[in-house]
């Protein structure tokens, strides 16, 4: 199959969705800029016109609110926030309005809206330009959240999100943009709520989210060289998340590590760990391990930044702990 990069796959999903469905339009910041969206939206304005690809003023709250209104009026808007940090200015339309809409009108109407927000961190950008806030959104009923980690999922989950009758938050990570992989040419959907087993294994389960799913595969290679057979699950959807697949794997290996690109306390990994502990308690041989960011904002300086972001080695060490081996000891 043809290979695309993650960013090309996002681009193709937008193109195909806009060509196939005239209700789809794009609004947000950086849409006419050659660099702002990291190439993920390049030239869409030329292809589909600037009436359908609106590079907006710096008005996150009103733009998101307008998208909710347009969705209720029969459109399929995609709102682009070049950083997840900026989505914080649009919490009211997203949570009070869009997420509650279906429930509060007893399912008679809903908000078919895609909010795309980018985790864009590293590069000494500091605390206000580096946040991975997905857990906050995972908390909210009525809002679906997806975080693709591969090019094929980047395309298929975006197309699924556009067709979903609910508000879907689609979070992509700039660190994944250059990853390549096979991507089908046609329009297809990756079902929201379904995880993918990226690597089958017997000894330990690693559940990875977004960038950390890619790190988990690297960690699994290292573990394999040490005689440890790890199963890697790419969660892909955060809400709803695939409890069936994760629990199945947990029961098989009895050892679970959750690798999450966000903070530790009340994070996505905490939710998954709690569920695994409750539902697979009798099959577990060790406490569930979490590999997360420390509970601190992102520092700017290179030295601190290097220490801040967990590497595959942190997942390897967590696996050792789960297997009851001393960290640092040779396998």
């Amino acid at each position: 199959m043809r290979e695309l990069s993650y960013v090309q796959a996002i681009h193709e999903a937008h193109r195909q969705a806009m060509a196939a469905d005239c209700r789809v339009f794009l609004i947000g910041q950086g849409l006419w800029s050659p660099w702002y969206a990291g190439g993920s939206l390049e030239d869409l304005d030329r292809e589909f016109g600037r009436d359908r690809v609106l590079d907006s003023p710096v008005s996150e709250n009103a733009v998101t609110g307008m998208a909710v209104g347009a969705a209720l009026a029969g459109m399929r808007p995609i709102v682009f926030h070049p950083r997840l940090d900026f989505l914080l200015l649009a919490m009211d339309p997203l949570i009070n309005q869009a997420a509650n809409w279906s429930y509060l009108f007893a399912g008679q109407s809903s908000v078919p809206l895609v909010i795309r927000a980018v985790i864009n961190r590293g590069g000494e950008q500091g605390a206000q330009h580096s946040q991975a806030l997905h857990a906050m959104f995972m908390h909210v009923p009525g809002l679906k959240t997806v975080m693709p980690a591969t090019p094929a999922d980047a395309k298929g989950l975006l197309l699924a999100a556009i067709e979903d009758p609910n508000p879907v938050l689609y979070i992509d990570d700039r660190w994944l943009y250059n990853q390549t992989g096979p991507v089908p040419e046609e329009i297809y959907r990756i079902p929201i709520g379904e995880a993918a087993v990226r690597r089958a294994g017997r000894d330990v389960t690693i559940v990875g989210i977004s960038w950390m799913a890619a790190q988990a595969l690297e960690a699994a290679d290292v573990l394999a060289s040490q005689g440890i057979d790890a199963e890697v699950i790419d969660l892909r959807s955060l809400k709803p998340w695939d409890q069936t697949r994760v629990l199945e794997s947990a029961r098989k290996t009895g050892r679970v590590i959750v690798a999450d690109p966000g903070w530790r306390t009340a994070g996505a990994a905490a939710e998954i760990a709690a569920t695994v502990a409750a539902e697979a308690f009798h099959d577990l041989h060790a406490p569930v391990e979490r590999v997360t960011l420390p509970d601190t904002p992102a520092p700017s300086s290179h030295a601190e930044e290097q220490a801040y972001y967990p590497r595959p080695s942190a997942i390897v060490e967590a696996a050792w702990r789960a297997l009851g081996r001393r960290v640092g000891a040779a396998a």
Binding site: E124, Q125, G126, A127, Q128, H129, S300, S301, H302, A303
Partner: peptide, 15 residues
């Protein structure tokens, strides 16, 4: 990004 920076290297140019 130095310790003697006005924000101890935590902020960078934007802080």
């Amino acid at each position: 990004g130095k310790t003697t920076g006005c924000s101890g290297g935590r902020g960078g140019s934007m802080h």
